[in-house]
Write a protein that binds this DNA or RNA. Sequence first.
DNA 1: GCGTTTCTCGACACTCCGTCGGCTCGTTCG
DNA 2: CGAACGAGCCGACGGAGTGTCGAGAAACGC
Lengths: 213, 213
Amino acid sequence: MTVRETSPRGRRAARPSGDDRELAILATAERLLGEKPLSAISVDDLARGAGISRPTFYFYFASKDAVLLSLLDRVVAEADAVSREAFDHPVSGPREGWGRVITAYYETFRAHRALTLAWAEARSSNAEIRRLWADVVESWVQRCTTAIEAERTRGAAPDGPPARDLAVVLASTNERVLYATFSGDGPALAETDVVDVLLEVWLRAIYGASPTD
Amino acid sequence: MTVRETSPRGRRAARPSGDDRELAILATAERLLGEKPLSAISVDDLARGAGISRPTFYFYFASKDAVLLSLLDRVVAEADAVSREAFDHPVSGPREGWGRVITAYYETFRAHRALTLAWAEARSSNAEIRRLWADVVESWVQRCTTAIEAERTRGAAPDGPPARDLAVVLASTNERVLYATFSGDGPALAETDVVDVLLEVWLRAIYGASPTD
DNA sequence: GCGTTTCTCGACACTCCGTCGGCTCGTTCG
DNA sequence: CGAACGAGCCGACGGAGTGTCGAGAAACGC
């Protein structure tokens, strides 16, 4: 087995024993995020949690945000795989198809609730995290755009705003509604209802007609 | 003229000359927010911008966030007034009515773009700002809920998810879509299109039907 | 064994925050 | 008129974080 190539993010070089430490830092981060918000976690907390001193932390990660980024990379990869699968899966009708898509999105982020909330917190202050999320949404929007256009072409959906614009709006809707549901601040939907309501709004937005006045 | 009662927030006591300083701090904050994100603005920046020292700043405001809160109070009051007016205004049909509502929301926050972005940044770390925004959205959702129920009662809109759930989703949609448009990061709609697209989605969500499969 | 690389940390320099105690005024009142 | 008071102001301090530097320990390659 040759020297393992780790991802560009993470520690500076690759060697055995240090791997444990890197994992320990990541695990500590995920654990602490379940207890308190990102802003209340210091580099020192992460270091001590992983059994090392603060300067040593910097041997493995460039900053607190770099740890979060590492964590997010994993979730993003998972979300992307699940989403791709949801879009490719054969379906019997629009309701089942879009329901599958929304459910996939919902399940993935629900499984990593703490990380999802931390991401939202870090986004406002970190350009790299912003970019990572923008990429995720973009690929999501593209898939939706294609699907909407296909529905229009086959005559199942009426014309309306450009498919991409519609996709951007719907992706934004999911993002904000699910975030509210998971974080629980401000008006939000119950976890048991959120997928159903979102699905109904999606279906109406894509297949429904607006009143002619 | 008796001693002016200032709002509970703001400086600790009320006396003439200090008013200028308080205003100067608020003005400085608004100016700096147009140049850099909230996180890049220090208390020292605000103090120096207002021509005072850092300790003196604390004579007027308890923290940087308190300044933002003061600024937001104003915008919130304005937004609330405009929104109330939009809902009460007599209209000739659904498209005009809802269009008025969405436009009001859009114009208000566009006029205070920098503040809107700062609010989003502060929300994740400040419970009081979170609560303020939650209240704003709540009153917004209630107005929408009532309006949707009225449309259903008069037979103009079909049944569907609970009106309140629909209202929460639509309010969230506006929030996220407009934020993306104003901040410009991630997939977003052009400022020229955003109201039209949102309106179409709203109309379909409220008046449209979903496919029966 | 011995150099090289990995890993580790104590100590430092820096930024920002919030507070305390004392200074300077103008106003009030005896 | 002159003390007393309070609004307004700031220098200086202590504390919490951050990121870096340079020197030491431990493992490895030969």
